[in-house]
Write a protein that binds this DNA or RNA. Structure first.
Length: 740
DNA sequence: GCGGATCAC
DNA sequence: TATGGTGATCCGC
């Protein structure tokens, strides 16, 4: 682990400081060599390190990519987008200055002759993936074939064969299923397994499970893979990338190991942080590692949205999902085609008809109807435009799709296009199938049978030395605190680590699910994450109410800030995360394709319970306005009266008088949701004529009990008649909001 | 709700 | 000569 980390750190971090290395850093706009070596300013994703690319001559890659690209329309469009990113960076920078001023201070085995030779799946216009011999030259997925060939003269192009990939993919799944029935297939060549139970039952380590799985995959397919083992999927995923191809990495299941690991981890390694986000964080705040995310938490809090901020913080805290997979319902379905750029409107019509046809077929296959149709266009200069309509009725037929798509397109012509696409969304019935993220938070909160402040087993409490024990460069929160009298900064960290191991699987080769032939024909694979085989087995509940599965450390973190902002307004912000001891111990595995690797994740699970920032307060205050939007002010005041006359109150300011759930006053948004929940129940009872919620005399307690049980099982199935009296709160709101 | 953008694979 | 397709999500209107 250490060698890996030191290598990664020097790669990413040092590039900022040393001039000679800055040559490789395309973000250094003011490089003195700019005119001599113009390719240095061409920001390309192809330089981002990918497995098997150690020792690549980056200078050469960058130069070739630049030389082959410059002057093209694509290139010009990239420059345009680059300029926009620059603007965003400038804007963030100036904001940052203000804040500071304010004191806030599978192929080879079948064709042996190809073994050991550089190969790429794809053609001259685009390649899908490349083997490790090719990667040594800088060739990689998503690179145009003509550039790849320039980098590697002897590159052998092979045609994709999705039938074959599906076959092998299914074989690997058969193996995974033996270790975790409910494994998550993220694509054809990547999967997450929860191997906690296997480890415990057989008293073996995550490493052993990973070895075993990789071995079995090889036996069955003769394909190698890589794996990573860790306490949650975020970490398992990162780990699976470390020793590929054909290797594995286990992150020790200890808090110190995890914190060391995460703090040195370059942010770009984290799934969800891409080229742009990396630049934002690096150029504005100098953040390059996940540890930096916590060091800069105040600036992040001030500069980014609550959603981004919570995401960044959870990354810095190594918090990642390890809970059972969710059967996410599909939210949209689309079809798009690229062709030679043209202005020929009869050609557009022909394409549009083909697309409408294909989309109608796909919709019919899944029995879907949608009411939002989106037309996507890419101009000859690579600019992407979308145009959407939301209809009053649901559509799915070719004729309906074509009718509305044609109207959308008509408003855009004349213009030169290289791509047309159609998408349908807002499906009929989808409001019953999904819960919004915030509601999931409430659900998970209700699932706890102890107050977050009263959970037993807290063994370790440290005041922010714990955080400072992580490597950092900048001033500690304490110094900020001292510098500004208006600030009341407090950070407490109570640590306790569970034992959930996650294994993540990722193929070393095959990656992209779709591929366009040179003749323009597109081969589309099925979305394997929708594979019915991975679904429908989620009924079984892992947790039993009232049972504590893990006696151990309890962790929670509270970031709190009070003070006066630059405008003189008082504010208070707070972030609270906790690792609950209710968590059933588990292990998750991430495995990778032509090669496979297993990693062990450290076993703690945590959830951001609450985050009330400056912006959040506004959100919390307005959260009841959902009723205004939906039903009218009159109904809202009526409902509020209902709530007031229902003897609803917070006993001792933390216990709900209706259902007994304990919610500390600090968790404002959670409380708001909880109140809304009871409010909705009252409204439901008042408007019993809706027919969705049968007349009943069940106590709130009983209803919530059912709700908890259902959600605990991890299912997101459509409501059966039996469940009619357990209509999710969101279904109630959504139904009213969208009823025509 | 719309449109642009980012991200993963 | 030449830079993909599908789906999700977020942000700022």
């Amino acid at each position: 682990m250490q060698p890996h980390h030191s290598r990664a750190a020097s790669c990413d971090g040092d590039a900022i400081r040393h001039d000679d290395e800055a040559a490789f850093n395309c973000h250094q706009k003011q490089s003195p060599h700019k005119d001599d070596k113009p390719w240095h300013s061409y920001d390309t994703v192809f330089l981002n390190a990918k497995a098997g690319m150690d020792g690549v001559d980056k200078e050469k890659v960058q130069k070739v990519v630049y030389e082959m690209s410059k002057g093209s329309r694509y290139f010009e469009n990239e420059k345009r987008k680059e300029a926009v990113v620059e603007q965003r960076i400038d804007r963030l920078r100036s904001q940052a200055c203000l804040i500071t001023a304010a004191g806030l201070a599978s192929l080879e085995k079948e064709n042996p002759s190809l073994k050991g030779k550089p190969m790429a799946v794809g053609g001259l216009s685009m390649i899908c993936t490349a083997n490790y011999e090719a990667r040594k030259f800088g060739v990689r997925a998503a690179m145009p074939g003509f550039i790849a060939r320039k980098l590697c003269q002897d590159l052998i192009f092979v045609r994709p064969d999705f039938e074959k990939y599906s076959k092998y993919s299914e074989l690997t799944r058969q193996v995974f299923r033996e270790y975790d029935e409910r494994f998550i297939a993220r694509s054809m060549d990547e999967a997450y397994l929860d191997v906690t139970d296997i480890c415990r039952e057989r008293t073996i380590s995550g490493a052993q499970v990973a070895e075993e799985i990789r071995h079995h995959v090889y036996e069955k397919t003769k394909l190698t893979c890589s794996a990573g083992v860790g306490p949650n999927r975020l970490l398992a995923k990162v780990c699976s990338d470390i020793n590929k191809p054909n290797g594995q990495y286990v992150l020790p299941n200890e808090r110190s190991a995890i914190m060391n690991f995460i703090s040195a981890l370059p942010i770009r390694k984290v799934s969800g942080i891409g080229k742009v986000t990396e630049r934002m964080l690096k150029d504005v705040l100098g953040i390059s590692t996940c540890g930096d995310l916590l060091q800069n938490r105040y600036m992040i809090s001030a500069l980014f949205s609550p959603i981004s901020r919570d995401f960044f913080f959870s990354v810095g805290l190594a918090i990642g999902g390890s809970e059972p997979p969710q059967d996410e319902p599909r939210k949209s379905l689309s079809n798009e085609r690229t062709f030679m750029a043209t202005t020929d409107e009869s050609f557009f019509s022909k394409k549009l008809e083909e697309l409408a046809e294909a989309l109608a077929v796909d919709m019919a296959k899944e029995g879907l109807q949608g009411r939002t149709l989106t037309l996507k266009l890419k101009t000859a200069s690579f600019e992407v435009r979308t145009r959407a309509v939301s209809l009053h009725q649901y559509i799915f037929s070719k004729s309906d799709i074509l009718l509305h798509a044609s109207k959308l397109l008509k408003a855009e012509v004349p213009l030169s296009l290289r791509l047309i696409g159609l998408r349908l969304a807002n499906f009929k019935g989808e409001m019953f199938a999904c819960l919004s993220p915030s509601q999931r938070t409430l659900a998970s909160y209700l699932n706890q049978n102890t107050s977050p402040y009263k959970t037993p087993g807290v063994t370790d409490i440290c005041e922010y030395e714990t955080m400072n024990s992580m490597p950092h460069r900048e001033s500690s929160p304490k110094s900020i605190d001292q510098d500004n009298e208006n600030e009341d900064l407090r950070l407490s960290f109570k640590a306790h680590v569970g034992r959930r191991l996650n294994l993540s699987y990722k193929s070393d080769g095959l990656q992209n699910p779709n591929y366009k032939h040179e003749d323009g024909q597109v081969v589309t694979s099925k979305r394997l994450d929708r594979d019915p085989l991975t679904h429908g087995t989620l009924q079984q509940s892992l947790l039993k109410p009232g049972e504590t599965y893990l006696a151990g450390e309890e962790a929670s973190i509270v970031l709190q800030r009070r003070g006066i902002d630059s405008c003189g307004s008082h504010f208070e912000s707070k972030l609270c995360a906790s690792w609950d001891s209710m968590e059933k111990p588990s292990t998750s595995l991430n495995v990778d394709a032509l090669t496979c690797k297993a990693e062990s994740e450290m076993g703690f699970r945590s959830s951001l319970l609450d985050s009330i920032g400056i912006e959040d307060q506004v959100a919390a205050e307005s959260s009841t306005s959902i009723l205004q939007i939906d039903r009218s002010t009159h109904v809202k005041s009526e409902a509020t009266n209902l709530l007031q006359t229902s003897s609803f109150t917070w006993i001792e300011d933390f216990r709900c008088s209706v259902c007994g759930i304990e919610v500390p006053a600090e968790l404002i948004s959670i409380r708001q949701e909880h109140e809304d929940y009871h409010l909705a129940q009252l409204l439901q009872e008042e408007s019993g004529g809706m027919g969705l919620w049968s007349n009943h005399n069940d106590s709130f307690q009983k209803q919530i009990g059912k709700r908890c049980l259902r959600e605990e099982s991890g299912t997101r199935r459509k409501l059966s008649k039996k469940d009619a009296n357990c209509l999710p709160i969101d279904a109630y709101f959504v139904k009213n909001r969208f009823s025509p």
